[in-house]
Each structure stands twice: as structure tokens, then as C-alpha cells.
Amino acid sequence: MQAFEYDSDWTELGVYPVKTENDIVRVRQMARQYAKNFRMGIVEQTRITTAVSELLRNMYQYANGGEVTINQGYVEEHNALIFTFEDQGPGIENLDLAMSDGYTSGGGMGYGLPGAKRLVDSFEIRTETNTGTLIRLMKWK
């Protein structure tokens, strides 16, 4: 599985391991703080925090944790907050199905991926069975 391309001009704001439920709370609070520092409106802050929370939970539940990298940089002339989620979990077998509303492979009612996608400006996903999943979210300012 190929990693996402990084722009050398991007600034890395932080790398956070996600191992426990408390990490989910901690990282999503970090996400809101960064969005706030970025002077995003309150609705935008809430959107990005919620999307991050959804993906953190997926990571925790299905992949036994992983790592989140937060960057800031210019993407297609937008000043963007960039969140990259990386795990070494089982991967997603049927991506099309997982991206459709109302699907879930264990507990809950789905919504995770398609819901998170609706809340951000850019959503990329790469997954490989038994290797892991890479997801990158971007929110323009």
C-alpha cells in the first residue's frame, strides 16, 4: 500500500498515537484546538472534530489503534488542515460498501466513513486486506 504524497512545504503540527479510548478524546480535542487556532468558524470546528472522532473510533475498534498525523499546508491554493490516519489493522475488504451509507462490519450502524466524508473538504482512503488502512482528511480554511 502506497503512502500519501506529502508536500515538503507542509508544517507538521503533531503526531499522536491512538491506543486507548482516552486517546480518542484527547486527539479529537487537539483537532478542535488546531481548528480554533486556524480561525475556523464554530460549525467548521465541530465538523472537523466530529469527522476526526469517527475515524479515531474506527481505528480503535477495528485496527487495535494506530497513529494520527496533523499537518498544515497549502493544497490547491487552499490553506488546509490535514489529518492522516494510519493503522496496521485488517483493512477494509469491500471499500465501496463501507463508503455507502448504512453499512457496518461490526457493531454500530455504519455512518462512520461516509459521514466523516460529508463533513470535510477532501477525503482519501487507501486500504489493503491484512496490511492496514490509510485515510487522509483535509479541511480548507
Partner: peptide, 14 residues
């Protein structure tokens, strides 16, 4: 419920 939370929930599909 805060307005921003309500908007986000609806967009999330809940």
C-alpha cells in the same frame, strides 16, 4: 444542543 452540533449531526446522517 448547540447549533453547530445539530448541523453536524444532520450532516453525519444522524
Amino acid at each position: 444542543m448547540q447549533p453547530a452540533v445539530a448541523i453536524t449531526l444532520v450532516e453525519l446522517g444522524l
